[in-house]
Design a protein around this nucleic acid. Structure first.
Lengths: 133, 133
DNA sequence: TGATTATCTGAACAGATGTTCATATATTTA
DNA sequence: TAAATATATGAACATCTGTTCAGATAATCA
């Protein structure tokens, strides 16, 4: 079926064109609260940096300490510490102290799930999206 | 069990300390190819911007055109177009032309899965991570 | 064809981001 | 307590990013 234009009139310069108000309303009704949306974006953003992602991937198979991670990735321990703090604040990783050493591990199973699904997406092993009826 | 330090000797300034070579080796063995890791990070990074995430969330329930999305989010159509191009390049969205109008939809089911899992993570409904035996 | 609508594109700029360096804190050991 | 180890923190800076603006391209209609 062809989509129907809700409004299509001559408009002033810089006017906001609203073609399908029903779709905009539908989007609004399924909208997340602003703060939750921003937290969601922050979570993805944290996983969107190659070095942070490398940290998370490394922890997939077991806990590691700061200087192990620094050696593995090839940046300073300070940089690793900075990033681990952000990952910890977002509850993506969690530290466990053993003497002077802090061993970091993934906080919950979601983190691995997210990485697994995203890898699947990259490799093209995914079904086309079907919007709800 | 207590973790054993592989090496713990006095080191020169700026020397790389390697405490647990076995863990570093384990991480290396499970490492993604460099290009794949970067593509993975790019995917998350795209989802890590509030406005792009809002675009994806809006498309969750059905396709929308550029100016609908611009009105919904509250940025210019140009900005939406720029972002949609990036999302399209990453195969997160896909356009369908109907006359002059381009309707965008989510490309595959992974996108919704990623958002759903991440929301679950935020809301704390997740099991602790258990590394493989 | 020329006018209109819808979307795209490139350049430019303000603001965000990740790293390093120097230093501080915490824990263990002598 | 003093020294050594492991990690954390704040400031500074170069780089990256998202937006807007102006103009280009694509499709429809008179």
């Amino acid at each position: 079926m062809a989509a129907q234009a809700t409004r299509s009139l001559p408009l002033e310069t810089n006017a906001v064109r609203i073609l399908h108000t029903d779709r905009i309303d539908r989007a609004r009704s399924g909208e997340l609260p602003k703060s939750e949306l921003h937290h969601l974006a922050d979570t993805f953003k944290l996983m969107g940096d190659p070095n942070r992602l490398k940290l998370l991937m490394a922890l997939k198979d077991g806990e590691m300490c700061v200087c192990d991670l620094a050696a593995f990735i090839g940046i300073t321990e300070s940089a690793v510490s900075h990033q681990l703090r952000r990952l910890k604040d977002a509850r993506l990783v969690r530290p466990r102290r053993e003497g002077q050493i802090l061993f970091y591990q993934l906080d919950d199973a979601c983190v691995v799930e997210l990485m697994t699904i995203a890898v699947g997406h990259l490799r093209g092993a995914a079904q086309p999206h079907e919007p709800p009826a």
